[in-house]
Write a protein that binds this DNA or RNA. Structure first.
Lengths: 110, 110
DNA sequence: TATTGCGCTTCTAAATTAGTAGCGATACTA
DNA sequence: TAGTATCGCTACTAATTTAGAAGCGCAATA
């Protein structure tokens, strides 16, 4: 499975290709979740696996490779952690928490 | 395939369950993209299909059902369109466009 | 030396997604 | 009125992705 990256586009076209790559990458199961779990700091392979409800190691490993290739995640002595780019992405996603609560409320009102 | 919704959680637990449901829902192929394409207004079934690179009608139909169940999308006389909730979600995702450009730049540098 | 835990790899099964064909309905055209 | 076109969508099979279990090789510890 290849990693979706934005640079395959025609330069200067700006027809939304970069964000489509974001949707493609984040739209794969576990990718958002993995990055989210790393917001607070580094995690080991098995720690990350556990924090993601015991996702299978084969999938985790392939995700790590993709996210690393996309420069959102890096391997360090402390374990896996976000790159600066990964952190800014999570900052952008942070407001979703508030939205999620609203969503929950609306759905509760059946 | 069942729709991930936040209300299955224990009330008041607030252990991030709602946002996990968001990740689960948006982490399915095409869901973000479909909502994104509807930002500017309603689209017909085939119009939506075309704007999503010709995604298969069977998948599109199942996505429409999920997003409708999640109250993010609704059917109107004009076609499929975002609900108010869906629009606020897209507002939250809008900053991703800027981030995507930065990401593109970083990846361009070797 | 034995045990424990680690980061993975390998394999098969299950689930999801893709893709093609086409139905029944409506609308417009010759 | 018969033909054509387009629509939303269904039904089906094939391809791809994800799940899940087992366990290897390595390092640290007992």
């Amino acid at each position: 499975m290849n990693t979706p990256l934005p640079n395959k586009s025609v330069r200067g076209s700006d027809s939304g290709i970069a964000i489509m790559a974001v949707f493609d990458l984040l739209g794969r199961k576990w990718n958002m979740r993995i990055l989210w779990q790393l917001r607070q700091g580094a995690l080991s392979f098995r720690g990350l696996q556990q924090s993601c409800d015991g996702m299978s190691p084969s999938v985790l490993n392939s995700r790590i490779k993709q996210l690393n290739e996309a420069k959102l995640l890096q391997t360090t002595e402390q374990g896996y952690q976000l790159t600066a780019l990964g952190m800014t992405l999570m900052d952008k996603l942070d407001p979703l928490r508030g939205w999620a609560s609203e969503w929950e409320e609306v759905l509760k009102q059946q």
